[in-house]
Design a protein around this nucleic acid. Structure first.
Lengths: 271, 271
DNA sequence: TTTTGTGAATGGCTTCACAGCG
DNA sequence: CGCTGTGAAGCCATTCACAAAA
């Protein structure tokens, strides 16, 4: 909370909503695709469809960045790509380190989506001495002992943790101490970090559980309200209709229970 | 978006908020840990800390499930584990298939967090004929031709897509046609599905971009009262304390721009 | 007394709907 | 006219704060 302060009277109203920030990468991806097809301009309607959101939301999102469109025409693709990239900080190079080179860590190291977005894997780090020196995705795995040196030598500020849950907090502490201020955590644990450090988590198991919840509800809804229903029936005898949010059919970009398009919660994923 | 028609006001009760559903797996994980340590009861305060949320939110969340606590005491760990598991539909077995056995698909196949949560990998499917029969994580890779048969033979309703972006929609269509109604998509593409099918996405590249946005902002602001230390320390001046990490900040479970606790957006991740 | 469960207050995000500009 | 940009309204979700229960 303390940080609620949004400073910056500068140009326009700085202070882009988190929800908007989270969608910018989506727009960027759609725009990049259009750009590669040499499409010069897009309307909010078209771009929204390509990104899987609704056009009003998209326009509102862009309005936080500035007035980059042309009424009666739409948005210039190239220009928007540039503006969003700049806003996201992708016009600069972000060296990242991946700690924990197991199956997942190796998969991440091989992932090609980094470079194309301004991220560069500066080093792969693992605690297993046997891994040291072994090449993964073209890079030699470095031992954990070198962690601090690697961070400072490369000016790394973003770290990816793909270790087992048990090692995550310790690795996190070392990364933070060495200067990392943003962490992407794949280990199924809650990380404790000092103020000023951002943590985002990705947990596959959680995503599957959320899907299971909705899946279960679908099954019981058709005609046989068995399983679920029973439970807290105590509340209101009424509710004949199981309030199941009917999934809005549409270009689903990450629909949860059929309502929110994607404002969700991340998932966890261990190494 | 056809019609602005609102759905059901839901008499009340049975509709658990999406945001709450998304946090149940988090509570479950924390509770499971307590259970393994044979802790009999927990207060909302303790459990909240372990799950990385605040206690008021946790109590409100549980209130949607029913009154499972005891005033003046707290919650019975075992009982809550059961109730949440049941609510999430984890008391039953969920066969899942993973399509696209590249680096990521293989990592997912090897992920141990499935079985422990009620998910069972029924099959691994890949389009590459050379992969057919090759064992991955103890299972022989099956060719895409068998997709439909595998789905119906095993009664699979949840599918995981870890293919390259270009193949995702096609795979998705086949899965849906064969009967899958929940999809976890790792390919960096917006999937279009019929009404009634849920899609959740995980995209690593997007998560990194969101981190970059905040990282960039930190660097630009120094007068920040809160961010203090951590700030632009990354490159040089940083590493004041190289010794041991004594960070005693808030338990960050996925802080956004230093305000929002965790309500975020998933990330994308290609194969 | 302790801690839950929950109305009420608050704040943020989404959607609407239309004014405004090209 | 067409389409953007945006005030205003509507919805959720989070947080507060306290009565109720053990």
């Amino acid at each position: 909370m303390a940080t609620g302060r949004t400073h910056r009277p500068a140009t326009r109203s700085r202070g882009i909503p988190e929800a908007t920030v989270a969608r910018l990468p989506l727009y960027l991806r759609a725009l990049t695709a259009l750009s590669e097809r040499s499409v010069p301009t897009v309307s909010s309607e078209e771009l929204a469809a390509a990104a899987g959101v609704n056009s009003a939301k998209l326009r509102k999102d862009f309005s936080y960045l500035g007035s980059y469109g042309t009424r009666g025409v739409g948005y210039d693709v190239e220009y928007l790509v540039y503006q969003i990239s700049r806003e996201l900080g992708l016009t600069q190079d972000w060296p990242v380190v991946i700690v924990g080179i197991g199956n997942l860590g190796a998969a991440l190291a091989n992932y090609g989506g980094f470079a194309s977005r301004g991220f560069r894997v500066a080093a792969l780090i693992d605690a297993d001495p046997a891994m040291a020196g072994k090449p993964v995705a073209g890079l030699p795995v470095r031992h954990t002992d070198e962690l601090e040196a690697i961070i400072s030598d490369n000016g790394v500020s973003i770290g990816v943790i793909a270790t087992p849950a048990g090692a995550a907090q310790q690795v996190c502490d070392r990364l933070v101490n060495a200067g990392v201020t943003s962490i992407l955590n794949f280990a199924p644990t809650v990380l404790t970090v000092p103020e000023g450090v951002d943590v985002r988590k990705v947990d596959l198991s959680i995503e599957l559980q959320i899907l299971a919840f909705h899946e279960q509800r679908k099954a019981g809804e058709d005609a046989d309200p068995a399983a679920s229903a029973a439970a807290a029936a105590a509340t209101s005898a009424a509710a004949a209709a199981v309030a199941t949010p009917p999934p809005v059919a549409r270009t689903a970009t990450g629909a949860g229970g059929g309502k929110g398009p994607d404002g969700d919660v991340p998932a966890v994923m261990p190494a």
